[in-house]
Amino acid sequence: MLTCKDASHLISESQERPLGIWERWGLRLHLWMCVSCRRFERQMVLMRQALRMLGKRAEADALSDGNSVDFPSDARERIRKALAERGEHE
């Protein structure tokens, strides 16, 4: 019989690899009986979706110009200098 700790491992790993047939059955049985693990499973799915959303949003932001970004001017100037130095060596 799986404990919640075992079940949480399997739920987590199911996001990384296909579970074996016995793992799937054991997990299914545990989830059928355990409301906390059912909630945990839903939370894990939501977390993954939300994290991917963060990534997609960052990518979309980077591709569009309509964002107000704080690009510190001193950082910008340091980079400009580094680029100029490299340019001279070419």
């Binding site: 963060l54 964002n67 690009f71 510190p72 950082a75 980079i79 490299r86």
Partner: peptide
Amino acid sequence: GAALYKYALTHTRDEHKAEEAVQETLL
């Protein structure tokens, strides 16, 4: 630069690293 910096900052969560990443990218 600004867009790259923001992207780098989101992923590295560190201003110095973000600056370094933008510089390395442009180089």
